[in-house]
Computed example of a mutant assay.
Amino acid sequence: MDCGKSTLALQVDHNQSRQGRSGLLLTQGDRSVRPQITSRVGLAHDAVEVDDHTDLLLLVRSRWADGTRVDYLIVDEAQFLTPAQVDQLAELVDASHVDVYAFGLTTDFRTRLFPGTQRLLEVADDVQRIQVEVLCWCGAPGLLNARVVDGQLVRQGATVVVADTAPTPVPEADHTPGPEVHYQVLCRRHHVLGQLGPGAAGPGQLELP
């Protein structure tokens, strides 16, 4: 998070398309809650929203059947892919010579590998850490994403909760405010200690590094 992965995904698409290549952008769980890839610096591009049941082989081959070229795929939020979908991407690379660029997080808020990420690490031809330096509040390299609910770091809950900095939407029939959920990048030390930085609320929070 905050490392510029979505920005880089859109830049790769831009560079590929400038060379006359035709690509397909895929995402799921984008922060915009819309079928698009968005970045925190304000860039956005329409994308195809996929879910756990999407057959990526069938998706691409249906485009070919319609006469649409697909030379490459840009997959943002790739950590949410299933292992089977990652294998489908590998088959597209090996059997159909489609270039696949996958961008995603390594671990979840519990510091566990996402299943999709694990499979990507196992079969990818090339794995690169994005070079934009992300820092913890203390100034150390930010390695882990902490889930913060109403100002408190949490270590249990659903693996996938899409959030940025806005409160959870409240159904019209329920006027009780939903919890505010966001993610904060921390170094390993402060993730283990559960310290969110100076001024953070809750027990166990330090006022100074």
Rank of each mutant, 00 (worst) to 15 (best):
Gly116Ile: 13
Thr159Val: 14
Gln85Ile: 03
Leu153Ser: 01
Ala95Phe: 05
Arg119Met: 10
Val75Lys: 03
Pro83Trp: 11
Thr107Gly: 03
Ala158Gln: 12
Gln152Met: 11
Pro115His: 06
Leu92Asn: 01
Arg129Phe: 05
Leu120Pro: 03
Val154Ile: 13
Ala163Val: 06
Leu144Asp: 02
Thr106Tyr: 01
Ala95Cys: 06
Asp99Glu: 15
Gly139Leu: 07
Trp137Ile: 04
Tyr72Met: 11
Asp150Ser: 05
Glu133Ile: 09
Arg112Thr: 02
Asp108Asn: 15
Gln118Tyr: 05
Arg129Met: 02
Val161Arg: 12
Thr82His: 10
Glu133Gly: 07
Ala84Lys: 14
Gly157Trp: 07
Asp87Cys: 09
Ser96Arg: 06
Leu135Gln: 12
Thr107Asp: 05
Arg129Cys: 08
Val160His: 01
Phe114Asp: 03
Leu121Ser: 00
Val161Gly: 00
Glu122Asp: 15
Leu120Ser: 07
Asp150Lys: 04
Glu77Trp: 04
Trp137Gly: 01
Asp126Leu: 09
Gln88Val: 03
Val149Gln: 09
Pro141His: 08
Leu92Ala: 07
Ile130Val: 14
Gly116Leu: 10
Arg155Thr: 15
Leu135Gly: 00
Val127Tyr: 06
Pro115Lys: 04
Val149Ala: 02
Val86Ser: 02
Ala78Val: 11
Thr111Pro: 00
Glu122Ala: 15
Phe114Cys: 09
Phe103Lys: 09
Val123Met: 07
Trp137Phe: 15
Arg147Tyr: 04
Thr106Asn: 11
Gln156Gly: 03
Ser96Pro: 01
Val132Trp: 10
Gln152Pro: 02
Gly151Trp: 07
Gln85Phe: 09
Glu77Cys: 07
Val160Glu: 04
Ala95Asn: 13
Ala140Val: 02
Asp94Met: 10
Leu92Tyr: 02
Gly139Met: 01
Asp76Met: 11
Thr111Ala: 14
Asp71Lys: 01
Phe80Thr: 09
Ile74Val: 15
Tyr101Gly: 11
Gly151Tyr: 12
Glu91Asn: 04
Gly139Lys: 01
Ala146Arg: 13
Glu77Met: 10
Pro83Ser: 10
Leu73Ala: 02
Val123Gln: 09
Val123Thr: 13
Asp87Ile: 05
Gln156Asp: 14
Ser96Val: 00
Val100Gln: 05
Ala90Leu: 15
Ala146Ser: 13
Glu91Gly: 02
Phe109Val: 11
Asp108Pro: 06
